[in-house]
Nucleic acid binder design. Structure first.
Lengths: 224, 224
DNA sequence: CCGATTGCCTAACCGCGGTTAGGCTATGGG
DNA sequence: CCCATAGCCTAACCGCGGTTAGGCAATCGG
């Protein structure tokens, strides 16, 4: 079994009196702190270059104490990758199912994807670069999510081309190109840069949906 | 013993008499073999996860023998990154200086970039992912090449927009998007796939230069 | 034809880092 | 009020892997 207590219900209102947050909740919070710290360090130095003691120090404990929360270093990496990848699917794919033309759905999806990634840059970088360090089973699971995500986008691109809303092109190539643009953002965007996120979102919707795919509605920057 | 007769180059009758290939040449060839093998393994397993003994085994020698060719493991990584990055600049940037419109020069550049990368997928992947493992000095050098490369492309995009050949957009965003598409190819293209390189090149020239940048000349797949 | 150099070898060092063992403290449920 | 548990600690293990030391055979320039 994988990550048995992945449940994320808010802490049960722990009664009239209070002894602080429920113990189960504290445990989940601590795990999340560790995962967040690990993601930051993994993204910066690379998974293999980071030691358990480094991760531990970032959350103010000793290396060996991490084993009270995770069974191994690989499980921490797995938690980082799984969380960001699964949430990417859960939060953004619904936009592809919403009502509207393929162009409108893709535009909303692009916005959602970019806005999702902004506060999760480091997790995303880890999820892109460190898949090779996962166990085969874990890697296969993450790959499954990713393939599904990309296929869903490709299907919408395909639909838009068949309906004539998008300019004709190879849908596989167009999907690869779109994901190149979308995922590339984690490599160069950082908040203190010259561009703010809203500019990037508007610009990328135009470049991807309006220009690359050729949807007239988004060809100029008029709509979001 | 591991494959003692690794010799592969048939003794080139290099002249009247023959003493085999010049010794300095043999040394360079051996270094290149090591770098090539290392790139392949680094790309597959990640720099930190690969041992000197792994690299050595791939070229049929023992781990310690590598130190007759490189001073350290990091120097091997540096050689991988420097070679691919410098050659990328040397071989492709001239297309941006050739005569022609910005669109024509960029189209030639896109083709050159993709054709350059195809036989160097693994080196490119290493150059993209493992920069953090380089020493600060080496990393700064590679970063310099990369920044220059991207800036030259951005300048051409900027010129095309100011001349009216390209549709208006933020040149920085357009350059980031273009490089997202161009560099993404190493993540998904492999020869045994369903697409062959020429299809990808033609498709990407259209998608990047014709569609994203809006050059009429390349909007449909008529030209290269 | 000889000696210096090249290229590779075996052996070993040694520190780093994932992991385990076992103890101490405080907390909170019964 | 007590004890089971959570959460963290110190100490240590131990294998992996980068690196060094030193030797042996082939080769090449003189």
């Amino acid at each position: 079994m994988i990550a048995p207590e992945q449940v994320d219900a808010p802490p049960p209102g722990d009664g009239p009196e209070s002894t602080g947050p429920a113990p189960a909740a504290r445990r989940r919070v601590r795990r999340a702190e560790i995962v967040a710290a690990a993601a930051r360090i993994f993204a910066q130095q690379g998974y293999a270059a980071v030691g358990m003691r480094d991760i531990a120090e970032a959350v103010g404990i000793r290396g060996a104490s991490l084993y009270h929360h995770f069974a191994s270093k690989e499980e921490i990496l797995y938690a980082v990758c799984l969380t960001v990848t699964r949430e990417l699917n859960e939060q953004n794919l619904p936009f592809l199912d919403a009502p509207g033309t393929p162009g409108q759905r893709l535009a909303a999806f692009v916005r959602a994807h970019l806005e999702f990634l902004q506060p999760r840059r480091v997790e995303h970088i880890v999820g892109l670069h460190e898949l090779a360090a996962l166990s085969p089973a874990h890697r296969a699971e993450i790959d499954g999510y990713r393939r599904y995500y990309q296929r869903r986008v490709r299907d919408v691109i395909d639909a838009g081309m068949r309906s004539g809303e998008f300019a004709p092109a190879d849908p596989r190539l167009a999907a690869f190109a779109a994901f190149g643009v979308l995922n590339g953002i984690s490599s160069w965007f950082h908040e203190d840069g010259a561009l703010d996120l809203e500019e990037v979102v508007r610009g990328y919707v135009v470049l991807i949906v309006g220009r690359m795919l050729g949807s007239r509605e988004y060809f100029n920057g008029q709509n979001s």
